[in-house]
Design a binder for these strands. Structure first.
Lengths: 107, 107
DNA sequence: GGAGTATATACCGTCAAGAGTATGTACGCG
DNA sequence: CGCGTACATACTCTTGACGGTATATACTCC
């Protein structure tokens, strides 16, 4: 099974995730919208499911795929320690003073 | 050249980035710390450099590799639209009201 | 139960990323 | 100038992800 980061390394899979941002979709919908064949779409969704990015709800012949927050949250949290590198240091709330001090040290 | 997401899909490369969080390091340092052979480390650093994750400063035989914010920022920004999925909706500042409304619509 | 729809999976070929190893290059120093 | 250090690159091999195609499964409706 692919890791969280590996899953999103494929542009096609990132596009699928983007399409699911506003609610669940069926395999056919996604395949049509992205111009991907149905079997390949099914395989990507399988990968996304195995790695926790989506869940499926069965409805007769249709499968509704829905986004799950966990893997995306995990990635966001991995990135968090680097945020000071590009964010304005004089943010209003004065949070992250330690981080800012680190920054000075490592310049 | 690999895309931003592809670069970090390899655990070894993520570890390199983590090691560079607190300032520049040389190839040898990184190789030793991570238990990776020097040639392979050089190749990873080449990849990280080609994709904009690091810059090099030459100093005699030594090369000091330093993190650049841009690719990490890019990834963080890609993830931003999904943040509402895991964050507390009643955040103090009351920002992102639109996002929260979206959430209701798509439930 | 037969036909059509929606989706999953099995099988196959390709290709490129990654690891390993050997070698090249550049610099400092005695 | 010869040697050691620090690093890059060339080369080879292997592996597995990906796409394509064909086929299986499951459900609905007439």
């Amino acid at each position: 099974m692919l890791s969280t980061f590996e899953v999103l390394s494929l542009p096609a899979r990132r596009k699928i995730v983007e399409r699911l941002r506003h609610g669940p979709k069926s395999v056919g919908e996604l395949a049509d919208e992205l111009g991907i064949s149905q079997p390949i779409m099914s395989k990507h969704l399988r990968t996304l499911r195995d790695s926790g990015f989506v869940t499926v709800r069965v409805d007769a012949q249709r499968r509704w795929y829905e986004l799950r927050p966990e893997p995306l949250k995990e990635m966001a949290e991995w990135l968090e320690p680097y945020r000071w590198m590009w964010e304005d240091r004089l943010d209003l709330l004065g949070e992250r003073l330690d981080t800012m001090r680190d920054e000075e040290e490592n310049r």
